[in-house]
Design a protein around this nucleic acid. Structure first.
Lengths: 250, 250
DNA sequence: CGATTGCTTGACGTGCGTCAAGAGCGGTGG
DNA sequence: CCACCGCTCTTGACGCACGTCAAGCAATCG
């Protein structure tokens, strides 16, 4: 894009002041207007069913865009809630769409963003549809890790912005299960975890758990590698590691 | 769109002759070029993990568009396979994108399509993340039903285009479980099922199973709102009923 | 026609949800 | 400073839903 175009786009963007934990960016069933870009902090998107229980659709870390899934509707299909001290940019979608007509690069970029969201959501589906609890938790950890790597932050040591309960809701697991899995990974020496602070001690092993058929489950001390996993993250946290689909295996 | 524009778009579309069961529209890891529109028949999208097991990402019925999730990549992230005698249209994406620059309606339509795909995939995630096997199967049945309703076909009696095994793979269930659930629904008089032919005998009851907390033994106002024509199916079968998230309940 | 594939049904084992009871930890107020 | 609260997180005991294994028909096919 040329400077003029960049100015045009920038003119649309509004920076939203620091949000505090629990504060909402938008609420389910309120009129759709914008999507949002995370500058710092973290956001979760949540839907509440008529039954009253809530489900977390995704976590968004710095660099991620959220709110796109609602653009074909009048109102948001989920709420977005800050997980911690967070600052974001507002992107008024209709105006962005309008502007995209004259800026091909912008149009392409929007397509690209949405396409990533689709691929990402599909990966999550795959992860959920038949992986063990351990695999899901590991996938989440590796995903946050990958996100940090992309942001040039330490991929091996970081703080999880979300609670155990959030993780559970996102991964389709009970809080207790999440807690047990993390504890178990800790005992096995694969990670360190204190509260929300994580250290990945053996990232290669963790990746293996995702990619390798767990015939020999967790024999402590086996050393052979499979293949140093790559092709990992797709987009944001919401971009889960290529949901390696444990398939029918268990 | 005016006649000229419609002609421009039509010029891009290529009709692909009848495919037979098992035939591929495109294959995972081959270069991305187009997305596709289902005219008649049915298509499934499938990814194969490095481990070799396959997972079904979605089913696409007449009127649905598939292949969008790969547009931000060089190659397709999944394979698309005909489930039965099927005819489709090819939509070369790059050219479509190009054309969209001069036809705002087209651009908007593309955004709309992609947004639906996102919402749809999110719904599937929600469905998978914590619903019982029965709820998942019912959701699939109701979804196909809804699709038929929209196509002005009988929503109460239809043929499932996919095998039990496909259903299982899609829903994250073992084939046996799918079979058992269908059998159980049959015994309860909620559906008739012979092979792949389904009759929904008590659609209202089926919907209830999805939305109502199974504490109370049914028999509340049988007729059900879902806001007709809203939020129900999003796109094709892949548009699952607003995955009512049984939440922590079980 | 055997052979392959799809579907069903039974028996059995287990992963993980549920219930219940603490254990930190931070915040608030006296 | 401690007492008290409301959280989040952990840990154990128990049971059920669903995966796995296995066997047996029906339908399609080469």
């Amino acid at each position: 894009m040329n400077p003029g175009q960049i100015r045009d786009v920038s003119a649309l963007v509004r920076s939203l002041g620091p949000l505090t934990r629990g504060q909402r960016v938008f609420s389910q069933n309120t009129p759709f207007s914008s999507c949002y870009f995370v500058k710092t902090g973290a956001v979760k998107t949540v839907t509440v069913s008529e039954r009253g229980d809530e489900r977390i659709l995704g976590f968004y870390l710095p660099g991620d865009v959220f709110g796109l899934s609602s653009m074909n509707r009048r109102s948001y299909s989920c709420s977005a809630i800050a997980l911690e001290h967070t600052s974001i940019c507002e992107l008024p979608f209709r105006q962005l769409e309008q502007l995209a007509r004259s800026i091909p690069e912008l149009q392409h970029h929007l397509f690209d963003l949405m396409s990533r969201e689709i691929a990402n959501a599909e990966n999550i589906s795959m992860l959920l549809s038949s992986n063990t609890a351990e695999e899901r938790v590991i996938a989440l950890l590796l995903n946050v890790s990958e996100h940090h790597r992309q942001r040039k932050l330490s991929p091996l040591q970081f703080r999880l912005p979300m609670s155990r309960s959030d993780m559970g809701s996102f991964l389709g697991l009970a809080v207790e299960t999440v807690s047990r899995i993390l504890g178990s990974l800790h005992k096995q020496g694969l990670i360190n975890i204190t509260g929300r602070t994580v250290v990945l001690l053996q990232p290669a092993r963790l990746s293996q758990r995702l990619a390798v058929d767990p015939d020999a489950p967790a024999t402590k001390g086996d050393d052979f590698c499979w293949s140093p996993g790559h092709s990992h993250t797709v987009a944001g946290v919401s971009g889960m590691p290529a949901a390696n689909t444990s398939g029918t295996a268990r």
